[in-house]
Design a protein around this nucleic acid. Structure first.
Lengths: 349, 349
DNA sequence: TTGTATGCGTTATCAG
DNA sequence: CTGATAACGCATACAA
């Protein structure tokens, strides 16, 4: 193991100079810096993270708490998350929860005790964040959470919930010229008891409307159907609902709608445009490519979620305000990034 | 942050005594030990991993290189791996490869440079271990690999390959009383060019035969069919092959065999027992429960692979020879553990 | 068995 | 802008 002393000796300077050059903190004489750099590369010097973490405030380790459920989703998320953070010389320490509040807290404590600078909690499946707030209160600044619903108690984080995805589906359809849109769901996050769209969805809609490209259209009419019947589509039509587009909230529901539409002699997507708003933690089906009809899927992209998460972690755990544009911004970034996901999606024609 | 000094002060002993008690290395006076323990728990003392890793030889961090492909498999593996190692106070640092030799080596180097005691490489998808041997030569003792095929160049590790799974399928069928068994596959690891079972499978078979519960039966007759025809089953039968059981090597192949058998009027599993030898890195299908016929699946259990991996890591990276029985041994452990996997499997009747 | 002293490789805080 | 020197918190060889 080659140390900083050896580099200093070879470059003929003091070790503090070497440290400065390699960390780029203070300003150094150019030629000295060159000598140091040369010496370092010649000796293939790699700073010891162990010593570095002891001496400095940071270990550059970020903990990630993963759920036991929805492994496919979370591993894709982890993939992107690690990829981004490695570019910042951060490494990811993982610990799985078993989808209980207790095991999740155990995992957080474990990661923190192992010296992580902070922890990213992705256990959105069981969504214990809200109730665990008490426990996280004192270590707020060391935990970033990804939740299905809104975060409470001032815990840093963001939510990737179905209503934001659904709202995006609405705007997509609206931008395509649809003014009469139906939504079939029994999800209480989307549909309220009065069989109307939920307040959460409404606010998500208005958020998107103001930032969206198209102007807000108040004349948009929305029909809400329940998926809890034999034939949701027929049921909705029987209520004199007239709509040219329809949003459903799961793959299985979509299958039913499509076959039902075909039985009714409808042509897709001419008579009816169908779009599936996929929940972030639902197992993303990859069999879409076999569909012969035109159906769109809108869902969170794990890459985008990872970008936001990385942003939050970097700015929460470190001074380093790795701004929205510091991260590769081929894609825009916001608190609620929404994107078509997985190439298997068939787009509108 | 409460340090070891404060604990020592509160217990009225020296800091080295505290260190000894907490690490259980040397022998200590019982009552002193008690005082120390009490003081430690009262102060909620948590040893600093940062200082510990600098002072000692180990960081207690184990790197895990994950592939980009077969995410479902590798995340299940990671889940078990992390679960086991956490009990040994080890934590897992992950880094993904992008299924290229270059990115895999990058990941290994990154993890090592971050202070990991060793790295567990699970990139069995692209199986680059054999060719990267050169690069791992000098850090042999810091890398444990999970490979699809045999490891070369003395790299520590083990293989979880299809032929070991297939061999297990053979013994299963043999133990059920089948003497005439067919194997349908085009996998060169299983079937050699002469349309016979491959040498690797043969040796795996004999390995299992000696350790298995049942005695070896040399009179076992094996028929080998190709899956590369319209109707593999019919093809095999046309060659006057008589067998009561059949092994196939993938889910899709199994589907074909089953439907073919039904067309031929066969009753499953009375006329023909079918077993699927699932490759370790194949996406484990969870839809088996919908099958109405009796088919068994034999595959590596990710839990067992994780156990073996943990064993290797513990004994390779640390003196700590976490023997076969140190690890929870509800299930037996060997270099090639084979088990029924995922509850979705339908067993023989 | 217990306490003391030194080292681990950096970063950070000072004087110069 | 540069070079000594003191932390960082713990493990460990060594002395008692």
């Amino acid at each position: 193991m080659t140390t900083i002393y050896e580099v200093a000796a070879r470059a003929g300077v003091s070790l503090s100079t070497v440290s400065r050059v390699l960390n780029g903190k203070a300003s150094v004489n150019t030629e000295m810096a060159d000598k140091v750099k040369r010496a370092a590369s010649e000796l293939r010097y790699t700073p010891s993270q162990k010593a570095r973490s002891l001496a400095s405030k940071y270990s550059h380790a970020i903990g990630v708490v993963l759920p036991n459920k929805n492994m496919l989703f979370s591993s894709h998320l982890l993939f992107s998350f690690e990829h981004i953070l490695r570019q910042y010389q951060k490494h990811c320490v993982v610990a799985f929860s078993h989808d209980t509040l207790e095991s999740e807290n155990e995992a957080i404590e474990f990661l923190l005790s192992q010296g992580c600078d902070g922890v990213f909690v992705t256990t959105i499946a069981s969504n214990p964040i809200a109730s665990t707030t008490q426990h996280l209160q004192d270590k707020k600044h060391r935990v970033v959470a990804l939740s299905k619903s809104e975060l409470k108690g001032g815990v840093t984080g963001f939510s990737a919930s179905i209503f934001e995805v659904a709202a995006y589906a609405f705007t997509q359809l609206r931008d395509l010229g649809h003014n009469d849109i139906a939504l079939i769901s029994d999800n209480s996050e989307l549909v309220s008891h009065t069989n109307d769209i939920s307040p959460a969805l409404k606010s998500a809609l208005s958020r998107l409307s103001t930032t969206g490209s198209a102007s807000f259209r108040p004349e948009l009419s929305v029909y809400v159907g329940s998926e809890n019947t034999d034939d949701p589509l027929l049921d909705l039509l029987a209520r004199d609902a007239t709509f040219s587009a329809l949003i459903c909230t799961s793959d299985t529901l979509e299958q039913r709608i499509v076959s039902s539409a075909k039985e009714l002699g409808m042509e897709l997507p001419y008579d009816l445009s169908i779009i599936t708003a996929q929940s972030p933690d639902s197992p993303l089906s990859t069999s879409k490519s076999t569909l012969s009809y035109s159906v769109s899927t809108v869902a969170y992209s794990t890459l985008d979620i990872a970008k936001v998460a990385a942003h939050y972690c970097l700015s929460t755990f470190y001074e380093q305000a790795a701004g929205e544009d510091t991260i590769d911004s081929t894609l825009p970034m916001s608190t609620a990034p929404i994107f078509l996901d997985y190439g298997s999606t068939v787009s509108f024609t």
